[in-house]
Deep mutational scan, measured.
Amino acid sequence: DHDVVPEDKFQETLHLKEKEGCPQAFHALLSWLLTQDSTAILDFWRVLFKDYNLERYGRLQPILDSFPKDVDLSQPRKGRKPPAVPKALVPPPRLPTKRKASEEARAAAPAALTPRGTASPGSQLKAKPPKKPESSAEQQRLPLGNGIQTMSASVQRAVAMSSGDVPGARGAVEGILIQQVFESGGSKKCIQVGGEFYTPSKFEDSGSGKNKARSSSGPKPLVRAKGAQGAAPGGGEARLGQQGSVPAPLALPSDPQLHQKNEDECAVCRDGGELICCDGCPRAFHLACLSPPLREIPSGTWRCSSCLQATVQEVQPRAEEPRPQEPPVETPLPPGLRSAGEEVRGPPGEPLAGMDTTLVYKHLPAPPSAAPLPGLDSSALHPLLCVGPEGQQNLAPGARCGVCGDGTDVLRCTHCAAAFHWRCHFPAGTSRPGTGLRCRSCSGDVTPAPVEGVLAPSPARLAPGPAKDDTASHEPALHRDDLESLLSEHTFDGILQWAIQSMARPAAPFPS
């Protein structure tokens, strides 16, 4: 592969990997390779389809078979030569091979799209000592099968071997295949498990690692696999990028399955594409389908809103127990993405979901129960707010008499603000006073009005108090039968009158 990737590009890729991570280095090298001529790309395919690569990765054979028959990708048995050289000459001794072996032994695996480039050397060096003999053996194999790289107009793939297949390693990572398949204008990513390549439709969760975000852009890794992070704060999961590491605690105790298979379609829109997988259930989501939507993949363990709600429900009964003089119970939860139609709101002032922060849900004790107040519409209280300059209440639009249902020339009671006709409430011909108009209920007259088809109010509507207090003497005590009587009149003013009279009014101040 030294004929494909020059030394300066190799060093530039290593520097970019240390600065921005393996995914960015892979993407940059792939983009550079696509700008080369067809001879360089053909050399790339020839390096990929060597015999030892085909033996190690069985899924490469179907890719090789898909090439046109007129494309010669065979390799000479006596060494490598550029395709432009007409004579089959043995190339001179390859010093770059020693360079590659020494550099890969030092860096474990470079971040390139060629056999030198995919593992994360920093994480491997940190986690190597417990498994040094086995990992050293794996390093000797890295130059042979560490990076199976493929690129063409139909298929483009980048393979990364790992030393996680050490025997006896619980939940060992089998390997990473960062794979971009450009077929019919689409893009897919796969993962390699035990020599087999699994596409998103049959993606397997190998051991402790999972394909957290099938994305090839942005600074985030394709698999949430930063070796420096180790395990999740809650004892979460091992990262795919942690090559040759000792077994780590796999999943939280509440995880239903340690080796679950995540779905390959969004649980909201039932469509495929780039998904984020939940650590607590097999569901996966688009970032845009979450509520609120996320802009980037959160670091650490992530769970959907259903799993978060289940966790909150487990903690909430203990938080609601009476604990005198104790601060509110704080339950730190990872930043969760909410699927459509589901929402768990945190306290005000918290950062938005999706940031690399930890939301704190506070379970406050329930407030003391209070008697429910009568629910009145805002339009129902409008007549009470229509007060004239002299303190006389004006008529609201649409006000109707509670007896006849007519809204023409209605009066407004100064005591309960109900609309009424003087002739309907006082049919006996009582003279109307000039000021202080009161309806039949507030004036103490319980004589029913002779209106055909309208039920008369119940005599129990009024329960006047002592006459010594004029204001308190007109406080009506309405009961269920009074409400039914008012409802039978089918008037809004009657219902409003009952609601206003049912509310307690402050006692009249004593004259000074």
Rank of each mutant, 00 (worst) to 15 (best):
residue 241 G to C: 09
residue 244 G to P: 05
residue 245 S to T: 13
residue 245 S to F: 10
residue 246 V to D: 01
residue 246 V to K: 05
residue 247 P to Y: 14
residue 248 A to W: 15
residue 254 S to N: 12
residue 257 Q to A: 09
residue 259 H to L: 05
residue 259 H to F: 09
residue 260 Q to V: 09
residue 261 K to T: 07
residue 263 E to G: 10
residue 264 D to T: 02
residue 265 E to Q: 12
residue 267 A to R: 12
residue 270 R to K: 12
residue 272 G to R: 09
residue 279 D to C: 11
residue 283 R to C: 13
residue 283 R to T: 11
residue 285 F to W: 08
residue 287 L to G: 08
residue 287 L to F: 13
residue 288 A to Y: 05
residue 291 S to A: 14
residue 292 P to T: 07
residue 292 P to E: 15
residue 293 P to V: 14
residue 293 P to W: 11
residue 297 I to T: 05
residue 298 P to F: 05
residue 300 G to Y: 13
residue 303 R to M: 04
residue 307 C to A: 15
residue 307 C to V: 14
residue 310 A to Y: 11
residue 310 A to V: 10
residue 310 A to I: 14
residue 311 T to C: 13
residue 312 V to R: 12
residue 316 Q to D: 10
residue 316 Q to H: 09
residue 318 R to D: 06
residue 320 E to V: 12
residue 321 E to R: 12
residue 327 P to R: 10
residue 330 E to Q: 07
residue 334 P to A: 07
residue 334 P to C: 15
residue 335 P to L: 10
residue 336 G to W: 09
residue 342 E to N: 15
residue 343 E to F: 04
residue 346 G to I: 13
residue 347 P to R: 09
residue 348 P to K: 10
residue 350 E to Y: 13
residue 353 A to K: 11
residue 353 A to L: 14
residue 359 L to E: 03
residue 359 L to P: 05
residue 359 L to Q: 12
residue 361 Y to E: 04
residue 362 K to H: 05
residue 363 H to E: 01
residue 368 P to M: 06
residue 370 A to R: 08
residue 370 A to S: 06
residue 370 A to P: 10
residue 370 A to E: 12
residue 371 A to G: 08
residue 372 P to C: 15
residue 373 L to V: 08
residue 378 S to F: 15
residue 379 S to L: 12
residue 381 L to D: 10
residue 383 P to L: 06
residue 383 P to A: 07
residue 383 P to M: 15
residue 384 L to S: 05
residue 384 L to T: 09
residue 387 V to K: 05
residue 390 E to D: 13
residue 394 N to Y: 15
residue 397 P to D: 09
residue 400 R to A: 04
residue 400 R to F: 06
residue 404 C to I: 02
residue 406 D to S: 09
residue 408 T to D: 02
residue 408 T to V: 08
residue 408 T to A: 10
residue 408 T to Q: 14
residue 410 V to I: 09
residue 416 C to W: 02
residue 416 C to R: 03
residue 417 A to I: 13
residue 418 A to R: 12
residue 422 W to V: 12
residue 422 W to M: 07
residue 422 W to D: 08
residue 423 R to Q: 12
residue 425 H to L: 04
residue 426 F to C: 03
residue 427 P to E: 12
residue 428 A to V: 12
residue 430 T to K: 10
residue 430 T to F: 02
residue 431 S to D: 06
residue 432 R to I: 07
residue 434 G to N: 06
residue 435 T to A: 10
residue 437 L to E: 05
residue 438 R to D: 04
residue 440 R to G: 08
residue 443 S to A: 08
residue 444 G to R: 07
residue 444 G to L: 03
residue 445 D to S: 07
residue 445 D to Y: 08
residue 447 T to D: 06
residue 453 G to A: 06
residue 460 A to F: 12
residue 461 R to P: 04
residue 462 L to S: 10
residue 465 G to Y: 13
residue 467 A to E: 09
residue 468 K to G: 09
residue 470 D to H: 08
residue 473 S to P: 11
residue 473 S to N: 06
residue 476 P to V: 12
residue 478 L to W: 10
residue 484 E to K: 01
residue 485 S to N: 03
residue 486 L to Q: 06
residue 489 E to S: 02
residue 490 H to Q: 09
residue 490 H to G: 15
residue 490 H to R: 01
residue 492 F to T: 00
residue 496 L to T: 03
residue 497 Q to N: 15
residue 500 I to S: 04
residue 501 Q to T: 15
residue 501 Q to I: 01
residue 505 R to L: 15
residue 507 A to R: 02
residue 512 S to T: 10
